[in-house]
């Protein structure tokens, strides 16, 4: 499933209080709540999304402070001591075990989280900025920008995106910033489409007409009046594209076409330990993959929870 399936999200105009929890509706609770606290209350009710947020924040903190919290050095010197501890399965000292060079896998997974998370966030931010700008302009003005945008997105369906990504990444994308740019080039289109749809419907609303009538410039109408109304879908597609970007990066790195060693990412960790499948060293494939899987899962749950909290009408 792609981002497109979330295209039907509509902006919220009503600020109805949520249907309260059972027992709370005794009529004495006529509290006026801000938009933010309404959103927070709805989000907190989504248990899995909250747990995902906590997990991601924790992982993010561990990744940022990897140097301080990692139990072992990333690349231990190749002494006889290190080599004696190499190729050992999970133990109290090395929770995820050690590889052929005696490198602690917990440490490597944490340092790899840094790469994967920053690529995921970087791609999501860049693609969202580019995609929302283009989508907003196309939806507001229509015309040739709109036409070109729709044709590009249609055509893009006939090229397998992983193949295109692999070709570009092989040429340009061995470093983290290059990888972010390469992945963003292929990630902005769904967001642009969603924003375009949103702006097409927002354009017909009275408040936009009012703003235009009172002499606001197009730029002001788009930025001050329409974008805030589209914020919920921007936020949701931003979150979901983090997951898509992390998966794409790790897939390319796994194929040997993305982040190259010695920079460590979950994808190239799995690439390096591919050969251990079926051997006693197979534990090397479990933990990087598990970290990757849980991260993407948490990001998707978070996106789901945000969507439910931001858009009560889209509740299942």
């Amino acid at each position: 499933m792609s981002l497109e399936s979330f295209a039907e999200i509509e902006p919220r105009e009503d600020v109805l209080p949520p249907p309260g929890p059972p027992g709370a509706g005794d009529g004495t609770e006529a509290v006026v709540r801000s938009q933010w606290s309404l959103f927070a209350r709805r989000f907190l009710r989504h248990r899995v999304a909250c747990a995902s947020l906590v997990f991601l924040l924790l992982l993010g903190a561990l990744a940022v402070f990897a140097e301080q919290v990692a139990p072992h050095p990333l690349n231990p010197p190749l002494t006889s001591e290190t080599l004696a501890a190499a190729r050992k399965g999970p133990s109290a000292d090395h929770w995820f075990g050690t590889d052929e060079l005696g490198r602690d896998q917990v440490t490597r997974v944490l340092f790899a989280a840094r790469i994967s998370l920053s690529i995921g966030l970087g791609v999501a931010l860049l693609a969202t900025v580019v995609g929302s700008t283009i989508g907003a302009v196309a939806g507001y003005f229509g015309g040739w920008v709109d036409n070109i945008l729709m044709r590009i997105t249609d055509l893009w369906l006939v090229i397998p995106s992983l193949a295109a990504l692999a070709i570009v990444a092989k040429q340009f994308g061995a470093t983290v910033p290059a990888m972010i740019v390469v992945l963003s080039v292929f990630a902005w289109m769904p967001i642009a489409r969603i924003l375009r749809g949103e702006f097409l419907s927002l354009r017909e609303k009275e408040f936009v007409e009012a703003a235009q009538a009172s002499g606001a410039s197009s730029r002001r109408v788009i930025v001050r009046h329409m974008l805030p109304n589209a914020m919920s879908s921007i936020l949701v597609s931003l979150t979901l594209s983090v997951g898509i970007a992390i998966l794409a990066e790790s897939t390319l790195s796994f194929l040997g076409l993305g982040i190259q060693p010695p920079t460590v990412s979950w994808g190239n960790m799995l690439n390096q330990s591919r050969g251990t499948v079926g051997t006693p060293l197979a534990y090397l494939i479990y933990f990087p993959g598990l970290a990757l899987f849980l991260t993407v899962l948490a990001v998707n749950f978070l996106g789901d929870g945000l969507r439910d909290a931001l858009d009560p009408k889209a509740l299942r």
Partner: peptide, 22 residues
Amino acid sequence: SFAGLAMPIFWFALLLIQFLSY
């Protein structure tokens, strides 16, 4: 389905080989 959408295909393949083959 949430798990399936978050599952990296290449990791799933390695796990399949490990568990269902070896």
